[in-house]
């Protein structure tokens, strides 16, 4: 019992220590906002913030894996649109039963991710290109299927998925917590997680160590596709409609959250805890600025600066390391 306590204690310390920069930024923003808006720190608002960030969290978790692997997934925003539109459309337009429609929606998004992974792993096409293509394909499918029309859905059991509660907890937040737990275990305590770091850190070395690199790559992209499909379905439930035009720029928010959380663009480095904080920073900035009724144009500028500052703080922390890396490239 005692041992366990110590264990969790040191884990908390670890999380704080390795995310010092971003936590500082988060606290600063939090303090500033609670001074500027008396609503910010209310229970209702915080719940609302967490419900808002849940969508980006699903995507960012997948993106974290992909980026640790040294890749990038630009298609998630479009997969959100595609799967939301298809799932709702299947139910409303084609009369498919809900469970089947949701399963099909998840399956299609997962398949899109799988195709991404296959192309990256088998043919060594850069993930940037593969997922850029998939981004167009998925968006196209959403538009072709819906004819550009949004589809309203008033099926109450479907709407519960995204808007319901368990006790006081909104369901999207519950999913988010479950996923964070699953992905933390996956990345930190499973063999597979180590393989992701290994492939991203040094593909050659992973290969020589007998890591099934192709399998790892395929699975990671497939997971990202699944998460995007999941996000799409939850979002459509929250919106009471399937909208082919959603998802624009979602991939960038997810990438920004990962980078804020210390995931390296060149692979091999990253933490789920960092990504969580990254998602929170981005979500809280929007929420706070909205609460203060700041115009959306100014919001863009403020957001841009805060992200830049956060990343700067983070790189300063590892400055020595940074310089040596730079140096290594210069010779």
């Amino acid at each position: 019992m005692k041992k366990n306590e110590k264990f969790s204690n040191s884990m908390a310390v670890d999380v704080v220590r390795s995310n010092l920069g971003i936590i500082a930024v988060l606290l600063l923003i939090g303090i500033a906002l609670s001074l500027l808006s008396d609503v910010f720190l209310t229970y209702d608002n915080l719940i609302s913030v967490f419900r808002q960030i849940s969508n980006n969290m699903y995507l960012a978790l997948g993106m974290t894996l992909v980026m640790i692997l040294g890749g990038i997934d630009l298609s998630v925003g479009s997969i959100v649109a595609m799967c939301g539109t298809l799932t709702v459309g299947l139910m409303v337009t084609n009369g498919v039963p809900m469970v089947l429609a949701i399963s099909l929606g998840l399956l299609i998004g997962t398949a899109a991710g799988f195709i991404n992974g296959m192309l990256v792993a088998m043919f060594r096409v850069p993930s940037f290109i593969v997922t850029l293509s998939m981004m167009n394909v998925a968006k196209g499918i959403a538009y072709v299927y819906s004819g550009g029309r949004s589809t309203r859905i008033m099926n109450s059991s479907f709407n519960v998925i995204g808007t319901g509660y368990i006790g006081f907890l909104p369901l999207p937040i519950l999913y988010m917590i479950i996923m964070i737990v699953i992905f933390s275990i996956l990345l930190n305590y499973s063999k597979f997680g180590t393989y992701i770091f290994a492939v991203g850190g040094n593909r050659e070395s992973a290969h020589l160590s007998g890591v099934p690199i192709k399998k790892v790559e395929i699975i990671v992209f497939t997971i990202a596709g699944f998460l995007a499909a999941f996000a799409g379905i939850i979002l459509s439930s929250r919106m009471y409609s399937g909208q082919p035009s959603v998802g624009e720029g979602y991939e960038l928010d997810a990438i920004a959250a990962c980078v804020l959380g210390g995931v390296s663009m060149s692979g091999g480095v990253g933490r789920i805890s960092g990504t969580i904080f990254g998602v929170m920073v981005i979500g809280i900035i929007s929420n706070g600025l909205n609460l203060m009724n700041v115009s959306s144009y100014w919001q863009l500028i403020v957001k841009g600066f805060i992200i830049m500052i956060a990343v700067l703080i983070d790189t300063q922390k590892g400055r020595q390391n940074f310089v040596t890396k730079l140096l290594a490239r210069k010779y």
């Binding site: 275990i185 305590y189 499973s190 063999k191 997680g193 180590t194 770091f197 290994a198 850190g201 040094n202 050659e204 070395s205 992973a206 020589l208 160590s209 007998g210 890591v211 091999g268 480095v269």
Partner: peptide, 26 residues
């Protein structure tokens, strides 16, 4: 030298053949 730079020494030594515990985790 082919080690994975950001993995620990121990993780590198056991890379590809990690012993699992009873939960199926490393």
């Amino acid at each position: 030298i082919v080690l994975v730079p950001y993995l620990s020494v121990a993780a590198n030594i056991f890379l590809g053949r990690e012993p699992l515990n009873r939960f199926g985790l490393k």
